[in-house]
Design a protein around this nucleic acid. Structure first.
Lengths: 341, 341
DNA sequence: CAAAATAATTTACGCGCGTAAATTTTTGAT
DNA sequence: ATCAAAAATTTACGCGCGTAAATTATTTTG
C-alpha cells in the first residue's frame, strides 16, 4: 500500500520516475511503451493505487473507449442475454460498454441516443425499437456516431446490420412441424412492434405454399411490449372461437408462445406432441425461458454467440479504420426440439 | 435550425448574448437564473442545438449528476425490473442513471465498483451478489461513495439498507399454505447465493413451529445463478427419492419454483390446488415470469414500487445533505394467489 | 426616491489530461 | 564501431468547463 495519495497523473508520473505524457501513453495503450517503462509504471501502480480521471481523459479526445449498447427492452431476457454477450465481448476487446434500454418507448429511445451522442462513444451497437422508432432521429444519429444495427433492421441504416435470418427460422420450423404432424397455424400480433415479425409471417406463407397446405394466420390484438399477456389473452380468444384450424400452432415469437401456453393451461388444453395431448405449440427465438415452460417449448433459437460476435467484430473493424459498404448479415437459427411440439 | 455549429459553451453564450458562467449556471440548475435569462438561453437552445460536453462538465466537479445502479444479474427479470424502476426514478429526479450488472461474478462486481468509483457518481444503488461478494471491497467502496444497499443486505454497510421483509414473506405464505391444505415442505439451495435465503428458511422453521407442524427442509445441490436449472434437477431428485413429505412445497424463490414446475411437468406430476392435482407449489418474489408458468405460480411478491421509491428517496436525501444513522428498512410482500397452490 | 439587501452576472483562474512537435534514446544495417 | 532510421520520451500548449471572488443589476425597505 501507499502512504500518500496520488492526486493526478503528474504526481503518479513523478513517483514512477517518468514524465506525465509517457504515463498517459501507457494508459492509452500499455503496449505502446517500452517493456522496461511498462514495468516501472505497473510497479508504481501496485504501490500507489492511481486511476486516471475518466472525464479529463475523454474531454479532449475525439474518440473515447466507450461502446454504447442499446436494446429496446432490458426486462426481456432475450435482450438481456444478448446485451450481456455483447458487453463481455466489448470488455474483452478493451472497451468500456455502457448499457441502455429504450424501455419500449420511442421517445426514450431518442433520449438515449442523445445521451449517447454526448458520450462520444467509439461506436454503438443498436437494436432499434423497430416500427415505432423515430427513423429520422436514428438516421441522424447513425450519421454522427459509428453505429451497427442488430436484431431488428430498419432500412439500410448505420454501418451494417447483423441479425437472424427470419425467413430461414420460420421456414425451418414450419418444415419440421409439417413433417411431424398437422401443418401449423401461425399465431402473431396484428401490429407487431418488430419488423422481424413481418418476415416470419411471409416465410410461413411461403413454406405452407411450398408444402401445398392452406395457411392460417391468426393475428391478435394488442399493443406494446407485454407479449406474454397479449399471447395469453389472444390465446383465450382463439381457443374459444376455434380459430386454430389444425392442432399445431407456430407462434411468431417465444414470448407469445409462453402466453399461449398459459392460456392453454388455464383452459385445460393439453400441450405436447404425445398421443394424449391436443395441441402442439412452437415458438421462435430460443428465449432463455423457453426451456422452463410446461411443457418445455420447441423453438428455433437465435445463434446468440454468432450474432454477438459478428456484430462486435464488424463494429470494431470500422472503429479500427476499415471501410466497407453497408451490408446485411443474417445468421441461421438452430431448431430446439422439446416437448411442446 | 442553425447555420453554424456551436462548438462550446463560450460560443453558445455569445449567441445567447450572455457570459459563459451564466450559461453554465443554467445548465447546472435552470432555476438558478432569472426567468428572463432562462428564456433567452432556451430560445438560443432551440435555434442552435448545443449540449455541454459531459466530460468537461464533470472533470472539475467533485460530485456529478450520475447515479450508479448495480445488480447481481441483469438477465434475471426480477433484477431487470427493479433496475428499470430505479432508473426511471433517477431520471425523474434529474439524475443520469448508469446501469451495471455483476453477471453473478464477484470479481466482476469489484471491477464494476472500480469503474463506478472513477465515474464519481453522486450516489450508488447497490444490490450486492451476497455471500460471494468481496465484503472488504464493498466496505471500502461504501466509504468512498454514498452507497445505498438494496435487495440483499451484507452487514451494516453503506448509508442504509432497503429491501423486503423476508421473515414476513415466508411467514405469510407459510400461513396461507398451512390454512388451505397440508403444511409445506421447504425447497431451497444448500448454498444459496443470497443471504435472504437464510432468513426465509429460518422464517419457515419458525412458522411451522408456531403451527405445531414438523418442518421439512429439502436443500438441493447446485452452485451459481442458474436457479431454474438447479430447481429442475433438484426437483427431479426430490420427486424420485420421495423427499417431499407432504403434497405442498414452498420454494425459497420463484426461479427455483419455476425449475421445480418444469421437473413436475417432465415427470407428469400435476400441480395445483384442485382436487385432481397431486402437488401444490408456491414461490417467493413475485418474479415477472411467475404469472406465465403452468399453472401460474402462487407467490408472495416484493413491493417493487415501494422498495424502489424508498431506496431512491433515502439516497437522494443523503445526496441533498441529510445525515442519518444507518438503518434497515424491510417492506412487506403481497400474497399473489394463483393456481399452483 | 435613496440606500441597503439581495440576487444575478462577470472576471479570473485552474482542473486533469490529450497530443503535436521537438528532443532524446534505442535499434538496425553497414 | 558508425550513422541513419525508428521508437520512445519530453516540452509546450490547449481543451471545455466549474467555481470562488468581484462586480453589477434588481428588489426591498425606510
Amino acid at each position: 500500500m501507499t502512504n500518500k495519495k496520488i492526486r493526478n497523473m503528474e504526481e503518479f508520473a513523478t513517483v514512477s520516475g517518468l514524465s506525465r505524457p509517457t504515463v498517459s501513453k501507457y494508459f492509452n495503450d500499455p503496449g505502446s511503451v517500452r517493456a522496461s517503462t511498462r514495468q516501472r509504471i505497473e510497479a508504481a501502480l501496485e504501490a500507489h493505487e492511481y486511476r486516471p480521471n475518466i472525464y479529463a481523459m475523454n474531454q479532449n479526445r475525439k474518440l473515447t473507449k466507450t461502446i454504447g449498447i442499446v436494446v429496446p427492452l432490458l426486462t426481456d431476457p432475450y435482450f438481456a442475454e444478448i446485451a450481456r454477450n455483447l458487453e463481455q465481448r466489448c470488455i474483452a476487446a478493451g472497451y468500456r460498454p455502457t448499457l441502455f434500454s429504450s424501455h419500449g418507448d420511442p421517445a426514450l429511445e431518442v433520449e438515449v441516443l442523445d445521451t449517447l451522442r454526448s458520450l462520444k462513444p467509439a461506436g454503438v451497437l443498436l437494436a432499434p425499437l423497430g416500427r415505432a422508432s423515430d427513423h429520422i432521429a436514428l438516421e441522424k444519429f447513425c450519421g454522427d456516431v459509428p453505429t451497427l444495427i442488430f436484431d431488428s433492421s430498419v432500412g439500410e441504416m448505420g454501418l451494417s446490420f447483423v441479425g437472424s435470418d427470419n425467413f430461414q427460422f420460420t421456414r425451418h420450423i414450419t418444415d419440421y412441424l409439417c413433417r411431424t404432424g398437422e401443418p401449423p397455424c401461425f399465431f402473431e400480433m396484428k401490429t407487431p412492434a418488430n419488423p422481424n415479425a413481418h418476415r416470419r409471417r411471409q416465410s410461413y406463407l411461403n413454406a405452407m405454399e411450398a408444402f401445398g397446405h392452406a395457411p392460417n394466420v391468426i393475428s391478435i390484438e394488442g399493443e406494446g411490449w407485454g407479449f406474454e399477456e397479449i399471447g395469453r389473452l389472444g390465446g383465450h380468444q382463439a381457443l374459444e372461437q376455434g380459430l386454430f384450424s389444425t392442432n399445431t400452432v407456430l407462434c411468431s415469437n417465444d414470448r407469445l408462445a409462453i402466453g399461449l401456453l398459459t392460456a392453454c393451461c388455464e383452459k385445460k388444453v393439453t400441450v405436447g406432441r404425445g398421443p394424449d395431448t391436443s395441441i402442439r405449440i412452437a415458438g421462435q427465438d430460443g428465449h432463455p425461458h423457453s426451456r422452463y415452460t410446461c411443457p418445455p417449448l420447441t423453438t428455433i433459437s437465435h445463434d446468440y454467440d454468432a450474432v454477438s460476435e459478428t456484430a462486435v467484430e464488424a463494429l470494431f473493424a470500422v472503429i479500427d479504420g476499415a471501410v466497407s459498404a453497408w451490408k446485411s448479415t443474417r445468421l441461421e437459427g438452430r431448431l430446439i426440439l422439446r416437448d411442446s411440439a
